[in-house]
Amino acid sequence: MSNSQGFKRYPAIRCWICHVLEGRYIPEERIIDTSFGKLKRLRILATILKKEEYIFTDSFDEDQNKVGLKFTLDDGTGLIVALVKNSESEQFKNASIGDLVDIVGIVTTRNEGSFVISPTEIMRKIENPDYKLLRDADIIGKIQLKKKTKPIKKTKANDKSELKEQIFEIIEQYSEGANGISFNELLLKLKINDEELRKIIRDLEIDLRIYPSEEDVYQCF
C-alpha cells in the first residue's frame, strides 16, 4: 500500500502586491509568510506596465531553450513580475500593455530573492473598472476582519444547522492563510463528540463547501 500523500491544492488568496513584497519566504515550505498568513497561490488585479519575451530552459530538455512572456504588473501598491511559459495561449498572447487583468498563479522567488508569479495560471482582461473597486473592498474587509478576534459562538447541541454554519465559518477563517484547520483543532474549539463532527464535515464536503487539503486538514474552496 502506498504511503504517499495526495496533491495539496492551495487556495488562491486575493491580496495586493504589497502583501507579497512585505512577506517572508520560507524555503523549507516554499511558501510566503504574509499578513494574510502563509501564501503560495495568489489572485491579484493589476495593470500591465510591460510585456516582453524572455528565454527559459525546457525542464525536460536542458539543451533546449524556449521563449516565454514576461509581464510587469502594477496594482497601485507595488510591482511584481509574472512569467508565462505557454506563450501561445490566447489569454496571454492577447494581453496588452495598459490592460487591467485578473491574475492567478503561484508565487515563488528568483535566485536574487525577488518574488515572481510563476507559473501564471490565469490572466483575464477586466473591462469594467468597477471590478477593481469591488476587489479592493473585499481585501479591505479581510484586513479589518483579521484585526478583530472573532469569538466562537455558543451553539445549542440540538441545533445542527447552526452548528454546521459555525464549523464552516471556522474552517473559512483558517483557509485565508492557506493552512486550513485540522480535525483535532476543530474538536478542541467546539467541544463536541468525534462522530458528530465527522458527520457535519462530511455534509460540508458533499455540499462542495470544503475539501481535505491533506489528511484530516480542511479548507474552503
Rank of each mutant, 00 (worst) to 15 (best):
T34W: 03
V116L: 08
D74L: 01
L188M: 12
A178G: 15
V107F: 00
Q64I: 07
D207G: 08
E172I: 03
F71S: 02
D216P: 00
L188E: 13
D99T: 01
L49F: 08
E214M: 12
R30E: 13
E176I: 07
G177N: 11
G6E: 14
K199F: 12
I97N: 07
I181N: 02
E90G: 01
R198F: 04
K148F: 12
S175P: 05
D75L: 05
K85Y: 04
I97S: 07
D203V: 06
D203E: 15
C15K: 12
K132Q: 14
M123Y: 03
P151V: 10
I31T: 02
K70C: 12
V81C: 03
V217I: 15
I17E: 01
G105A: 05
D75P: 00
N128K: 08
E62C: 10
L163W: 05
S89W: 04
K160Q: 13
G105P: 01
T34D: 00
K38E: 14
P129I: 11
K146T: 03
T109C: 04
G6Q: 13
K147G: 15
Q173I: 10
K70Y: 07
F183Q: 02
D74P: 01
I26K: 07
G78R: 08
I167W: 04
G141F: 13
V107P: 00
I201W: 01
Q144Y: 15
T72Q: 09
L187S: 06
D138F: 14
S182C: 07
T77L: 05
N111A: 10
G6D: 15
G23S: 08
S182F: 08
D130H: 05
A178T: 09
G76K: 02
F60A: 09
S87E: 13
Q173V: 11
G98W: 00
A82P: 00
I126A: 09
